[in-house]
Amino acid sequence: MSKTTPHSQQNVAATIRFLDAVRQRVATVVVGQDVVVERLLIALFTGGHILMQGVPGIAKTLLAATLSKAIDLQFARVQFTIDLLPSDILGSEVLDQRTNTFQVLKGPIFTNLLLADEINRAAPKVQGALLEAMQERKVTIGKESFKLPAPFLVIATQNPIEQAGTFELPEAQLDRFMLCHRLQYLPKHDEKEVLRRNLMLGVRREAKGAIARTEFDAISDSPVGTQEDLISAMEAVHHVHVSDAFLDHVVEILDRTRKHPAIALGCSPRAGIAMLKASRARALIHGRDFVVPDDLFALAEDCLLHRMRLSYEALADGKTTASVLEELLTEVGASKSALAKA
C-alpha cells in the first residue's frame, strides 16, 4: 500500500468503510457475484452506465434493488418489450380536465437507479430515447426539458441466448455504456448457498392470506450509506492518481485494437476514457489511491469487448471478440516498438 496525502487518505478510508458496509448488505441478499457488485459500484462512482449480459435468473434485478436500498437511492425497473414507447420511459404530457391544461407526467427514468431489463427487446426508437437520456442526463417532454436526478445510473440487461424478436444494439449505442459485464453462473458452492437461503425464506402473512417470501423480501429497507457517502466516494475517485506509465498501457492496448488484423472496428477514445475512469474507481474499491496494471487487465474485457467488432474473416475462422482481446492483451508485453528498439 502506498502512502497517501492526509486529505485523500481520509476520503479513501471513509469510502472503504462505506464500501464494506454496502458489500456486506448486498452479501446478505445476493450470494457471490462479488465482481458484479464491484462493477456496479464502479459504474455508480464514475457516473457511467452498465450493460449486463447474462441468462435470466442470476439475480440481476435483485442485485440492483439491493444496491439501491443499501445506498438510499431511488430505484425503478422497466421491462423492455417490443410495444414499449419512448413516452413509457421518459414520460408524457396529459390533459388535466379540471384545469384544461397539460400536465407533465414523468416516466420511470426519473430515478437514481434504473434497471432496463432486456433492453434489446425494445424497438430502436425506444433504445435511442433511453440512450440519449443516458448521455445528456436530461429529458424533454413536450416543450420542457427536465434534468434527471443525480446520481443517475442505468443498469441495462441483455439475454445473450434468445435473439429472436430482439433488436441488437449497434456498436455506436453500445459505446454509450461504460461497462458491459458478462454474468456467469455461480460456482457450485455459491449456488448451493442460494438454495439453502431460499429454503429458509418461509411465508409472509398479508391481510387474511399469505404469500411465499422471495429474496426481495429479504432486502432491508434501512440504508447503510447515504447519498452523501456516495458523493464522497465519487470525489475520492477523482483523487486517484493515474501515472504516465499507466496512460501508456491504455494507449498501447487501444492502439492494438485498431491495428489487429482480426478486428474490423477497434476501440474509440471513449473506450480509453471509460477504462481510465473505471480503473480509478477499481483502485479506490481495492483501497489504493493510484491505479496499477491489474486494474487495466481486470477491466479490459468489460470496457473494450463491446466496443470491438471482428472482421468477417475472423468470424469465418471461428474467432470471438473475447479470444481476440485475450490474444491482444497477452501480446502486450511484446510490443512491436520494443522489437524495433531491440
Partner: peptide, 28 residues
C-alpha cells in the same frame, strides 16, 4: 522515458508469465 518504462513493465510481466508458465492463463 515514460513510454519506455511502461514497455519495460509489460516486458517484465511477460518474463514472469513465461517463468511461471502462465502464458495460457488469462492475463487478468
Amino acid at each position: 522515458d515514460s513510454e519506455g518504462r511502461a514497455e519495460l513493465e509489460r516486458l517484465l510481466l511477460s518474463v514472469w508469465r513465461v517463468r511461471l508458465s502462465l502464458q495460457d492463463v488469462p492475463v487478468r
